[in-house]
């Protein structure tokens, strides 16, 4: 006992100095990590401010140039692609349609299903549960070829329906909402029933307001997920007027690979930045909701 009492007194000065060095090291590690994360984006940003000839001659640029507006303007409004009827603005709109459509569809479908599973006495509840949750097992990428054939057979290629609806065939949202509904106190249902509220009134007046944060968090996660889809849009949309920004990236890479003319890396980086700004802005702005929504799944 006496040893532990005296030890801190004698250790005060050296420990404080060591602590300081440790703190410096901690910050150094974090700054290196942040640089690893940021440098590629910074280079994309600086390169997007230069002319393609200069980039081709001197490589990626570390300093800002004067062509920022020209490149972003070209990426946004100048027609590109083979048919020449697609601009960055059109792709931006398509990306929003896919992101919002997917997120909203997912929330509506999964809230309904989770409500039915958690709050009703249902004969085939266990079966329905397993039928829905098996979809968690197999990502779309695994069954991509037959999925494409099904959509093609239905004549849904090159349509927003074919783009969005098949992506909804997974249970992630239902799973989140089920977990959340299970954590809602049971007394609320009993109280609602005593007050004579039916299932519809209970859902609209009690459950939806209670789930607000959860809905927001899932919206953010699903919006980013929908916005960033690549493989499915690549297969389903061959008409350029339906391209999303992320889908458009593939076209740019192909143009670079063909190498018939000087690859316009300035414009390509501008388009890459336009494609990442909306999801990044949403994630950064609603950080705490997003982190909560994401880590809640870890249950």
């Amino acid at each position: 006992m006496t040893a532990t009492d005296t030890a801190p007194v004698s250790a005060v000065t050296p420990r404080r100095r060591r602590l300081k060095l440790e703190t410096v090291l901690d910050h150094a590690v974090l700054i290196c990590g942040a640089l690893f994360m940021l440098t590629p984006i910074f280079l994309a940003l600086t390169t997007a401010s230069h002319d393609k000839v200069l980039i081709q001659r001197e490589g990626l640029q570390w300093a800002f140039g004067s062509e920022t507006l020209t490149n972003f303007n070209a990426a946004m409004f100048e027609p590109g692609g083979f048919t020449g009827d697609i601009t960055g603005a059109t792709m931006l709109m398509n990306s929003f349609i896919l992101g919002v459509g997917f997120a909203v569809g997912k929330i509506i479908l999964s809230m309904m299903a989770a409500y039915a599973i958690v709050y009703f006495r249902l004969r085939f509840a266990t079966l329905a549960f397993w039928v829905i949750f098996t979809t968690l097992l197999l990502p779309l990428e695994v069954r991509i070829v037959p999925s494409y054939e099904v959509i093609q057979g239905m004549g849904l290629t090159n349509s927003y329906t074919g783009l969005i609806v098949p992506l909804l065939a997974s249970a992630t949202g239902t799973f989140f909402f089920r977990q959340f509904f299970m954590s809602v106190p049971e007394e609320l249902v009993e109280a609602a029933r005593i007050d004579g509220a039916g299932p519809f009134k209970f859902f609209v007046d009690i459950l939806v307001p209670l789930s607000r944060t959860m809905i927001a968090a899932i919206f953010i996660i699903m919006f980013v997920y929908g916005w960033n889809q690549y493989l499915w849009p690549t297969l389903i949309t061959t008409e350029e007027s339906l391209f999303t920004l992320v889908r458009g990236i593939r076209q740019i890479v192909q143009a670079i690979a063909e190498g018939s003319e000087i690859p316009d890396y300035g414009r390509a980086m501008a388009l890459a930045l336009i494609a990442m700004i909306p999801p990044v802005a949403i994630v950064v702005t609603f950080q705490s909701w997003f982190v909560k929504g994401l880590t809640e799944t870890d249950k």
């Binding site: 994360m37 960033n228 990236i249 593939r250 494609a275 990442m276």
Partner: peptide, 8 residues
């Protein structure tokens, strides 16, 4: 960077 799409 979580929000950056893989192809981007």
């Amino acid at each position: 960077v979580y929000a950056v799409a893989p192809p981007v």
